[in-house]
């Protein structure tokens, strides 16, 4: 097996998406379930903020020169990567504010709304970074779909862990989110099979990878647990969910086929 590359980016994307997922899901339930008292828990922005902070710290280690990370805002006019840093910076700032305010006992919907919008934008921009001609399989809507799925599943689950009283409400939502992840996991390679050579090779690389089948297996199990067995939310399940997300992201960063890998080979 080839060595796994880009672990810092795997961690950064998963953690930042978990953070945004928490914010988004909390916002969603505050809007639709306004009576739920524990929803405004400061632990929610607290955990999200922690995830984001750790994630951003991890991201520095994918740089050849981490100390130069601050300069990555230099090319905002064209570079989606610069914009990603800005977006997560902005989201982090609002999230931090929200956290501080809540620990002070203040629940300000406008601040939550701001972090909701900033988080959503950050994930979208983050997905846009990976949509480029180097990896034809990713030069599509798939990065956004993958990132959104991660945010959705982890956000819901973490919210459930922080607010156990919500668990029964969340369970069907988690089931739906898992079905979504399961579908995207297996649909993406099928979609790629109808693309150009690099996309088809990406699909084949996925099919040949143990990671693909392990993640698929975990997803089937999880989906089964939540759709048919109405499972409880437990730490073990959280670990399994996180593992499958990590594996999915390892696939994302290691099993995509670069356009240049197939120069000289027929498109057929």
């Amino acid at each position: 097996m080839k060595p796994i590359k880009e672990i810092p980016l795997v961690l950064f994307t998963i953690l930042s998406q978990a953070a945004v997922g928490l914010t988004l899901m909390e916002g969603f339930f505050i809007f639709f379930y306004p009576g739920e008292a524990r929803l405004w828990s400061p632990a929610v922005p607290g955990l999200a903020f922690l995830c984001l902070l750790v994630g951003l710290a991890c991201s520095l280690f994918h740089l050849g020169h981490p100390s130069g990370g601050i300069r990555s805002l230099a090319n905002l006019s064209v570079s989606w990567l610069s914009r990603e840093i800005l977006a997560f910076g902005g989201y982090g700032a609002v999230l931090g504010l929200d956290m501080v305010l809540r620990y002070q006992g203040m629940k300000i919907p406008m601040v939550l709304l701001s972090s909701f919008i900033a988080g959503l934008a950050a994930v979208a921009v983050s997905a846009r970074v990976y949509k480029n001609p180097g990896y034809p399989a990713l030069d599509t809507f798939w990065p956004f779909v993958f990132f959104a799925g991660t945010a959705w599943v982890l956000g819901l689950f973490l919210l459930g862990m922080i607010c156990p009283s919500l668990a029964s409400v969340l369970r069907p939502f988690i089931a739906v989110a898992l079905v979504f992840e399961l579908m995207t996991h297996f649909l993406a390679p099928i979609f790629w099979l109808s693309g150009g050579r690099a996309q088809r090779c990406t699909a084949i690389a996925h099919y040949r990878s143990f990671f693909f089948w392990i993640r698929g297996g975990i997803l089937v199990l999880m989906t089964g647990l939540f759709v048919f067995a109405r499972s409880d939310l437990s730490v073990l399940i959280l670990v399994l969910l996180t593992v499958q997300e990590l594996i999915g992201r390892v696939l994302f960063f290691n099993y995509m086929v670069h356009a240049a890998d197939h120069i000289g080979k027929s498109l057929e």
């Binding site: 090779c201 084949i204 099919y207 040949r208 143990f210 089948w213 080979k265 027929s266």
Partner: peptide
């Protein structure tokens, strides 16, 4: 070895 689909052959 090509796991799990040996019939997927990239040229």
């Amino acid at each position: 070895r090509r796991f799990p689909f040996n019939f997927w052959k990239t040229r």
